[in-house]
């Protein structure tokens, strides 16, 4: 009886959070220095970019979409900006151009999804491939990696600076999380995002301009991707465009769904993303300290995700009668 009550209150977010706490306790017991301030900061810092990208993904996923082009937009727009600075363009102009590029691509993706009614999975998959290809063919030629120019001034501080001892990427990520939390929770547009994700047809009938809203979601995700790109580039002083071909986009999805955001839209909030990001951060940090091979880390990460969704499906079973058609 009590077990049932407990089970009813368990959801994926709580399961993942408990898992994170358990891991922290385990690591703290087993690994010396794990609870050091320095280690904890580097733990959070290592997943800050992932978290920021997760926030972009969250906005899109809440509206029953998915954006596989985030990493491509992030890499190409920022790499192009830096390329332009190398070619002599003023820093702000170059960054503005990069931002315009990111927003333009995201806007076009949004148009494809909202107006051309192409399933988001495909629109963004295709845009990802296209953006990468276009960038490599016409914007950034001859090199995979664009190094950070030395004349970027205070912007470098975004990746490398510190605010009262906390690395800036963490501050920026926290700021972004707070802004998006406010947006989703307290603005009209934020509630529209939930409404559309919950029931698109009903939102349309009740008078929400569904299509512009969808475009807005992708544009917001594009802006966030650009911010994440600037963070990455300034932290490691370079932008490697091959990141597009890596598993990174899968990691972003992992962070989002791990925390319990429903891929079918309308369910989830910023807290879920934070929880998911923290779990990944703790895991990776612990495993790195234990000197576990990168591929093995991948396996463990995936197994944990699998465990989370299996538990979720056992606790909240999907019903043959109410399952949505075409919901993959």
């Amino acid at each position: 009886m009590r077990l049932q009550v407990v089970a009813r209150h368990l959801n994926q977010e709580k399961i993942v959070f408990l898992l994170t706490v358990a891991l922290v306790i385990a690591f703290a017991a087993l690994l010396p220095n794990f609870l050091d301030r320095g280690n904890l900061l580097s733990l959070v810092r290592s997943v800050a970019v992932l978290g920021v990208l997760g926030l972009g993904m969250l906005i899109v996923v809440l509206g029953r979409g998915i954006d596989l082009s985030l990493v491509a937009i992030m890499a190409i727009s920022v790499a192009w900006s830096m390329q332009l600075i190398h070619q002599g363009l003023p820093v702000y102009a170059a960054l503005a151009l990069g931002l315009v590029f990111a927003v333009g691509i995201a806007f076009f993706t949004g148009i494809l999804v909202a107006y051309a009614e192409i399933p988001p999975l495909f629109a963004t998959l295709a845009m990802s491939t296209f953006v990468y290809g276009f960038g490599r063919a016409h914007l950034i030629t001859g090199t995979d990696v664009v190094y950070m120019p030395q004349n970027m001034g205070w912007i470098v501080g975004l990746g490398q600076g510190k605010l009262i001892g906390i690395p800036m990427p963490i501050v920026i990520a926290a700021l972004a999380a707070f802004v998006i939390f406010l947006f989703l929770r307290f603005t009209k547009l934020g509630s529209y995002v939930y409404a559309i994700g919950d029931n698109l047809a009903a939102s349309r009938i009740s008078g929400i301009s569904v299509r512009p809203m969808l475009v807005l979601q992708y544009v917001l995700a594009g802006v966030i991707a650009f911010v994440a790109g600037v963070l990455t580039a300034t932290s490691v002083e370079a932008m490697n465009t091959r990141i597009v071909n890596s598993n990174m986009i899968y990691d972003v999805i992992l962070v989002v769904v791990l925390g319990g955001v429903g891929l079918s839209g309308g369910r989830g909030n910023v807290r879920n993303v934070i929880v998911g990001t923290l779990l990944i951060g703790v895991l990776m940090n612990g495993m790195t300290i234990m000197d576990i091979q990168y591929t093995v880390q991948n396996v463990i990460k995936s197994l944990i995700l699998l465990l989370a969704i299996v538990i979720d499906s056992v606790v909240n079973p999907r019903d043959e009668q109410t399952g949505q058609q075409g919901d993959i």
Partner: peptide, 21 residues
């Protein structure tokens, strides 16, 4: 050059899915 393949593939995918939808 190296980017053209994905570019063409991406464009075709968008176009094809658009037509299909």
């Amino acid at each position: 050059n190296s980017g053209s393949g994905p570019m063409v593939l991406g464009l075709t995918l968008v176009f094809a899915v658009f037509i299909d939808v």
